Simulated scan of single mutants.
Amino acid sequence: MPTDVDRELNRIGDTLNRVRSRTDVAVSGRNRQHREAEVVRRLGRIAVADGAILVGAIAFALIVSPLGIMGAMLVGLLLIAATIFFAALPASAPVNVEKLAEIPLKALPRSTERWLETQRPALPSPVRGLVDSIGVKLETLTPQLATLDENSPAAMEVRKLVGEQLPELLKGYGRVPEPLRRVERNGLTPDQQLAQGLQLIDDEIAEMTAQLAQGDLDALATRGRYLQIKYQGEEG
């Protein structure tokens, strides 16, 4: 017969499952949108390349001489080669994390999100949900930064958190040798420190988004919070 403890554990488990389900739905929709956008970009490049080949072939036939069978075959081969090449070519260049500080503010969340997606497989399973949650919040933050002055204190605070502290947190964790990531030091393991840092960043992005939505730029600019994460020593 289930005890009160069992019922409480089941209730907590159900709550966690509902939260996880909502995050999974948001992440699934975001990933689907990204895949669709990538397909559109690839198809656009293929259309431009094939169009240029056809225009060049028609111009050659009208100005120089008819293409003939061999010329038509060559054009066909060029069309096939261009289609295969641009279909296989990545839709967007990889994000250089060292260049995030130079990216325009309105493009910073999406670039950081793309970089996060490349880091996700190397992170421990328990924190991947946090990474997904941060990705969803970054996507929500993007349109709010479009009208924010690049040189305003609020913009600098956003850039510090998203473009500096978040990448530094993951790079710092990556520098910890694999065997030491689950070894406790000063009461916490590096895996636990990573989870705490990501949770803090997730909460901070949510608060920044709310403050931008309310137009409360002064509060955003004067938050003054900085991550204090320890990896085998102290790193600010």
Rank of each mutant, 00 (worst) to 15 (best):
R110C: 04
P124T: 06
A221H: 07
Q228A: 12
A61E: 03
S28M: 09
T83Q: 02
G197Q: 03
Q199C: 10
L116G: 02
L100I: 03
V95N: 09
I205V: 12
R20Q: 14
L166R: 04
V75M: 12
P109L: 09
V64L: 09
A91C: 03
A88C: 07
D50L: 05
T3P: 15
A221I: 10
D203R: 14
V95A: 13
L67Q: 04
A206S: 08
G215V: 01
A107H: 13
P124L: 04
T15P: 00
R225L: 05
V48P: 00
K137V: 02
Q196K: 09
F85Q: 05
E164G: 02
G215K: 02
G172I: 04
A91E: 06
I134H: 04
L194H: 06
V25W: 04
M156N: 14
P167S: 08
S65C: 12
Q33D: 10
G129S: 10
P167W: 09
E184N: 07
A221F: 04
E178W: 07
L78Q: 09
A26Q: 07
L130I: 08
R182W: 08
A213I: 07
P121K: 03
V158M: 03
Q144N: 10
T209W: 01
L169R: 11
E117R: 07
A107K: 11
T112Y: 01
V39D: 07
R114A: 03
E8T: 15
D149C: 07
R45Y: 01
D6A: 11
P124A: 05
T15Q: 13
L220D: 02
N96L: 12
T147K: 14
Q119D: 01
A26T: 05
G29M: 05
L78M: 15
G215Q: 06
K106R: 14
V40G: 01
A101T: 12
D24Q: 06
L54S: 09
V97D: 03
I84W: 03
D132V: 00
S152K: 03
G76P: 02
G129Q: 12
S152R: 06
V5Y: 15
D149H: 13
V39A: 08
E235K: 15
S21A: 14
G233S: 11
Q165Y: 03
L130D: 12
G71N: 09
M1V: 15
R30D: 12
G135Y: 08
T83A: 13
A154N: 01
Q33R: 15
S92Y: 09
L78C: 09
A91T: 01
D149N: 14
F86K: 00
A195P: 04
T209M: 08
V39Y: 02
T209C: 05
A213F: 03
P167M: 05
H34L: 09
D149A: 15
P94S: 14
E204D: 13
R20M: 01
P167V: 06
A101Y: 06
T112H: 06
E204C: 02
R22I: 08
K230Y: 15
I229T: 11
P190G: 04
I12T: 13
R120F: 00
A72I: 05
P126C: 05
G76W: 06
L67N: 13
V40C: 01
P121D: 04
P153M: 10
L198D: 08
V48Y: 05
E234Q: 10
T189R: 13
A107C: 04
P109R: 01
Q196A: 10
A81D: 04
D202L: 11
P167F: 11
W115Y: 10
Q33T: 08
I69N: 14
Y231T: 11
P143S: 00
S133T: 10
V19K: 13
